[in-house]
Design a protein around this nucleic acid. Structure first.
Length: 714
DNA sequence: GAAAAATCATGGAT
DNA sequence: CATCCATGATTTTT
């Protein structure tokens, strides 16, 4: 059924090269595929609570994750869930069900709706074909994935019932939008399906949905990131009819929510497994998906807690984002305003009422439970948009009512941060001050080791030992080709004087990239590719062209710092969002004639682009092998290089490298963030392994301290 | 600056 | 009383 759908809604798929399907290697999938138990959607709250005999300060020490043991529902429970009326007869107090569990909404919306709409989509698909060309290449490709893998998703989805929510909005939608717009929705849906199946991702099993761990959280965030960027790209390329995906962030979020690709669905007081204090997020939807803060918009998340017979709401997390007049002066204290009362479209400002979130906060004050605090602040990297920092657990100390600016009553809650947690928000404040110069960074050896060669200064810092700095080298901001590149191929440049535009198919550089720019409008790399093409020296586009991201210089404030046991390392003062460009690997290109000179005795500061690294989940490695790097590139940063030469190896890195070809003959190496990187976390990448046939450099002991550490690197 | 969006809780209806 | 359904409250984001 799904196969039929795929070929129906995307007419071009008739021309798909079936042989590709056979080449698709099974990708690493995170979890085995479990169809969700049919009764999942009817869980309700039984009686007993483990909280009854527990001090109000919370059932577990701070920082220690959840009170839920990892319980697989027993057979009796499961059958009880299947029979909703049997709920009350569950005899034993089982922790996992002792709280009101939100009904999971992973409805079959995606499949159900698409199939219903598919007949309409056929005509619309034809109409929109010219525009579709903007991304049809990649779409067709993933289409092959769809046909080969979709069965998993379909079967998993169909077991759950159709989301009424979805049906609801659909009805509204129909009256407002034209027919062909809703048919475009199908496009998005199928793109999303393609996308997900290309990861062989069929959803999370119920256990992983209920309680997360580090792996699930990062994985979900990666998927979200990629899907969101993908939808953004589609929105981009369809400039003729804007508004297809007005809010890619929300769109990507709901798709994943509906498919159950989320975690920590079980609401909980206190720490959330898989999420650490200091973690950063760029969208509210991300908070929903990982279960840190469930409401997609509201600032207060709460749950009802059963105490003996009574039920009362307690707050579990809040987002302070600047909509209200919160006081954030002191880093460990937060004066938080209650919700409501703000001016709405028709009404005026009103007094806040002691209900919902406000009531929950009040109850939490008396109960003394810990409340997670997420602080949102302006993202300086992008004009619009915010960064959210998980600032850990707080307790409410007092509450009062005061007159707001508008003269209406506003609830205020004073929250105090629990002691013993890693720095998060306070670190941001310090960094702000370093930048302003109001306080100085401890241990600075050089304020700018690039001596102005980069657009932003790079400090050299040592607050660990007495080492005065790395051995002398010349700072090169970019890769130096010693010999003029041999022009075996005529350079194919572009003539986009105003900068390359997403939909412009006449642009050679876009053509080389398969019909779509590899970057989003924010300059974020869409996804890893074995090779991407940027504009080069003879292109007519300006330096700020969107297809010159890796040439535009540093965008984040970096520092080279002394690590505890790995020599010098690199980290950033600014938060870095997933996919963002960090820097290139600068140095001197080593060609065959000079190779001897560098020889094997100088293994340090050598970058070998023929190395391979363990592919990450975010890389649905396309079987398309045509785009390999055009020639082996080896860079030496021994005598001269940039910040990249200080990046250490890690077996679970935050950064990966990506070959970038500028015109036909200039190959560069650019580094991009794998996931969101909070400030001051060391930037590391996987040094990879040497292609077989080449001499192995000597092994070095790896000190990355990750659970997946291989123990050594080259 | 307006408009649109998604989620969950809530309360009324069945 | 349990379940179903519709609506409201929330505020972020482009």
């Amino acid at each position: 059924m799904e196969q039929g759908l795929g070929s129906e809604s995307i007419p071009a798929s008739g021309s798909v090269d079936k042989s590709r399907v056979l080449n698709v290697r099974p990708l690493r999938s995170l979890v085995p595929i479990f169809p969700s138990p049919p009764g999942m959607s009817s869980i309700s709250s039984p009686q007993a609570s483990p909280f009854v005999c527990v001090p109000p300060t919370g059932p577990f020490p701070p920082g220690v994750a959840p009170f839920f043991p990892f319980v697989i529902p027993t057979e009796s429970q499961r059958s009880a869930e299947r029979n909703p009326y049997g709920n009350n007869s569950i005899p034993s107090p089982v922790p996992i069900t002792s709280f009101r569990t939100p009904t999971p909404h992973y409805s079959g919306a995606a499949n159900g709706n698409t199939s219903r709409k598919s007949s309409r989509s056929r005509t619309a698909g034809v109409q929109s074909q010219p525009e579709d060309d903007g991304y049809s290449d990649s779409q067709n490709q993933s289409d092959t994935y769809l046909s080969s893998f979709s069965m998993h998703v379909t079967s998993a989805e169909n077991t759950s019932k159709l989301g009424r929510k979805k049906g609801n909005s659909q009805r509204k939608t129909k009256s407002v939008r034209e027919d062909n717009t809703s048919a475009r929705d199908v496009d998005i849906e199928s793109v999303a399906n393609d996308f997900l199946t290309s990861f062989n991702l069929s959803g999370f099993d119920t256990i992983r949905r209920a309680d997360g761990d580090n792996e699930s959280v990062t994985y979900i965030l990666m998927i979200y990131s990629l899907l969101r960027r993908r939808l953004t790209q589609i929105e981009d390329s369809k400039d003729a009819t804007p508004g297809v995906t007005r809010r890619p962030d929300l769109r990507a979020g709901t798709i994943l929510m509906n498919k159950g690709i989320r975690t920590n669905v079980t609401k909980r007081v206190g720490a959330v497994p898989g999420i650490e204090v200091g973690d950063i997020f760029f969208f509210r939807m991300e908070l929903c998906l990982v279960g840190l803060h469930a409401p997609s918009m509201a600032g207060i998340d709460y749950m009802s807690l059963k105490i003996s017979l009574d039920e009362e709401p307690v707050a579990v997390s809040i987002v302070s984002s600047g909509s209200y007049e919160d006081n954030v002066e002191d880093g460990d204290i937060l004066i938080y305003s209650g919700q409501g009362g703000l001016l709405r479209r028709d009404k005026n400002v009103t007094d806040q009422k002691l209900e919902r979130g406000n009531l929950a906060l009040e109850k939490s004050l008396h109960r003394g439970n810990e409340v997670r605090v997420i602080r949102g602040m302006k993202d300086e990297a992008s004009q619009s948009g915010k960064v959210y920092v998980y600032d850990g657990l707080y307790k409410i100390q007092e509450s009062w009512v005061e007159k707001g600016k508008s003269g209406c009553n506003v609830f205020k809650y004073k929250l105090i941060r629990a002691a013993g947690q890693p720095e998060a928000f306070t670190l941001w404040k310090s960094i702000q001050q370093w930048k302003q110069g109001t306080t100085s960074r401890v241990g600075v050896i050089l304020p700018d080791l690039t001596s102005g060669a980069e657009s932003l200064p790079v400090s050299l810092v040592n607050d660990v030992d007495h080492e005065k700095g790395p051995a002398y080298f010349i700072y090169l901001p970019s890769l130096k080709y010693l010999k003029p590149a041999d022009s075996r191929q005529p350079s194919l440049s572009c003539t986009c004087r105003g900068g390359c535009q997403p939909g412009d198919l006449n642009c050679h550089c876009i053509q080389k990239n398969g019909g779509a720019l590899p970057y989003t409008s924010l300059g974020v790399l869409l996804s890893y590719k074995s090779l991407i093409y940027e504009c080069g020296p003879s292109c007519l586009c300006p330096p700020n062209c969107r297809n010159r991201i890796s040439q535009a210089g540093l965008k984040v404030r970096l520092e080279v710092f002394r690590t505890k046991d790995k020599g010098w390392g690199l980290r950033s003062w600014d938060p870095i969002r997933a996919g963002a460009f960090i820097c290139e690997y600068a140095g001197e290109v080593i060609d065959k004639s000079t190779e001897k000179e560098f020889g094997s005795e100088t293994e340090d500061y050598i970058f070998d682009a023929t190395r391979t690294f363990e592919p990450l989940e975010i890389m649905p490695e396309n079987s398309d092998d045509s785009q390999k790097i055009p020639f082996p590139l080896v860079i030496s940063a021994k005598n001269g290089g940039n910040v990249a030469r200080f990046m250490n190896h890690s077996c679970t890195p935050k950064v990966y490298w990506q070959p970038v070809l500028r015109e036909e003959s200039y190959l560069h190496i650019a580094f991009f963030a794998i996931s969101h990187i909070p400030p001051m976390q060391e930037l590391t990448y996987d040094y990879g392994t040497v292609r077989s046939g080449k001499a192995e450099p000597r092994r070095k002991k790896c000190r990355c301290e990750s659970p997946k550490c291989r123990g050594y690197f080259y």
